[in-house]
């Protein structure tokens, strides 16, 4: 089945559900393919475990949740440890190296970047961590066009924050590119 399954995981308040929505919107609205986005979250608005899933396909998507992940993004150690078992063989694991110290071993393609640190140092705002992550993911996964994701971000983010979000996304794309190049070298 031609499904590409992505899970964005971390803690509540990191904006992962929004990132998932943006990715799904990019795929459907601007790339003209099919995608569904689901989520699960705890009672907390901030903290606690949070995950968003995006399933991408060229045909109808029946079961909307991920079963066997093609890509797992983890911004916290807890979420990485909890969800790694769902990542398929040779699947992509992207972790925030500032938070995930204990990276699971296995047959995965692992990409590490200090994502929240990048958001703070390069953009000056921790709140755009999700968009930086989305940039990295977009470049590494290659399932959504960069142009589509950029448009989807701008359609979603609050007025007046377009510039920093664009910058955050570009930072993510750049870092994602560097990580890809690095992995090809090694």
């Amino acid at each position: 089945m031609d499904r590409y399954e992505i899970r964005l995981s971390g803690s509540g308040g990191q904006g992962l559900i929004l990132a998932g929505k943006i990715l799904a919107e990019a795929v459907v609205i601007y790339d003209g393919r099919n995608a569904v986005q689901t989520q699960s979250y705890g009672p907390e608005a901030r903290g606690g475990a949070s995950k968003a899933e995006v399933v991408i396909s060229d045909s109808d998507i029946d079961y909307p949740k991920a079963v066997e992940l093609d890509l797992l993004l983890s911004l916290t150690q807890e979420s990485c440890t909890k969800y790694i078992c769902d990542l398929k063989k040779s699947g992509i694991l992207i972790v925030d190296s500032g938070a995930v110290k204990d990276i699971p071993h296995g047959d995965y393609r692992i990409y590490e970047a200090d994502i929240s640190d990048l958001a703070v140092k390069e953009i000056g705002k921790a709140v755009v961590t999700n968009i930086v992550a989305l940039g990295i993911l977009t470049r590494i996964a290659g399932v959504a066009s960069e142009e589509a994701v950029r448009k989807a971000i701008l359609a979603r983010v609050p007025k007046g924050t377009e510039e920093i979000n664009k910058k955050a996304f570009d930072t993510g794309l750049r870092v994602g590119g560097e990580l890809l190049a690095e992995s090809k070298r090694s």
Partner: peptide, 9 residues
């Protein structure tokens, strides 16, 4: 909850 919170076309 799944139907209510799933985003799709």
């Amino acid at each position: 909850e799944i139907t209510g919170h799933t985003t799709e076309k």
